[in-house]
Simulated assay, not measured.
Amino acid sequence: MIQIMRWTLEPEQGQSLFMAHPFESNDHWRAIDESRNIARDYRLSVSVDLFGWFIVERHWGRIGSKGQSVISGFSTQQAAERFIASIRTRRAGAKKRIGVGYERV
């Protein structure tokens, strides 16, 4: 007996064909102190690529400038979560380091 499997790309009711992975997120923070000329911008974007890798993109710099960016890839969600937690901890400690805290935008 030969069994033929048929694959369809029809989404279930209420779903999109291109559903976002539940782990995907975007964070945006700014630290501003006009009296000390501090205007910092920090963006953190997390996504999953086609091969299942967790991609963490970071962009930072002075508000209005091109700034810098780094892209890191992780094979497991746990490794990506640890990395993201360390970034968030560092942003939370900005008040002590630079004298002004980051606020979520």
Score class of each variant (00 low, 15 high):
M1T: 12
Q3P: 00
I4V: 13
I4H: 02
M5P: 02
M5I: 13
M5W: 14
M5H: 12
L9H: 01
L9D: 08
L9V: 00
E10Q: 06
E10P: 04
E10S: 09
Q13L: 12
G14T: 05
Q15E: 03
L17G: 13
L17Y: 06
L17Q: 02
F18L: 12
M19I: 07
M19K: 13
H21G: 00
P22H: 10
F23V: 09
F23G: 13
S25F: 07
N26I: 04
D27Q: 06
H28L: 05
H28T: 07
W29V: 13
W29H: 14
I32F: 02
D33S: 07
D33L: 07
D33M: 03
D33F: 04
D33E: 11
D33R: 05
R36P: 05
R36V: 08
R36K: 15
A39M: 03
D41A: 02
D41F: 01
D41G: 04
S45I: 09
S45C: 00
V46A: 05
V46S: 11
S47K: 05
V48S: 01
V48H: 07
L50N: 11
L50G: 15
F51T: 02
F51L: 01
G52D: 01
G52T: 04
W53E: 14
W53N: 12
W53H: 14
F54E: 03
I55M: 15
I55F: 05
V56E: 00
V56A: 07
E57F: 01
E57R: 12
R58I: 02
H59G: 01
G61I: 15
G61Y: 11
R62D: 13
I63M: 05
G64C: 09
S65C: 01
S65D: 12
S65T: 10
Q68I: 03
S69N: 06
S69C: 02
I71W: 00
I71F: 04
I71K: 11
G73D: 12
F74E: 12
F74K: 11
S75H: 08
T76G: 06
Q77P: 14
Q77D: 08
Q78N: 08
Q78C: 10
Q78P: 13
A79G: 06
A80L: 04
E81Q: 15
E81V: 13
E81I: 14
R82Y: 03
R82I: 14
R82T: 15
I84D: 01
A85L: 12
I87V: 14
R88S: 14
R88L: 14
R88Y: 01
T89N: 06
R90L: 11
R90N: 05
R90D: 11
R90Y: 10
R90K: 13
G93K: 15
G93T: 11
A94L: 04
K96P: 01
R97M: 04
R97I: 09
G99H: 11
G101Q: 08
Y102T: 06
Y102R: 03
E103P: 05
R104G: 07
R104A: 08
R104S: 13
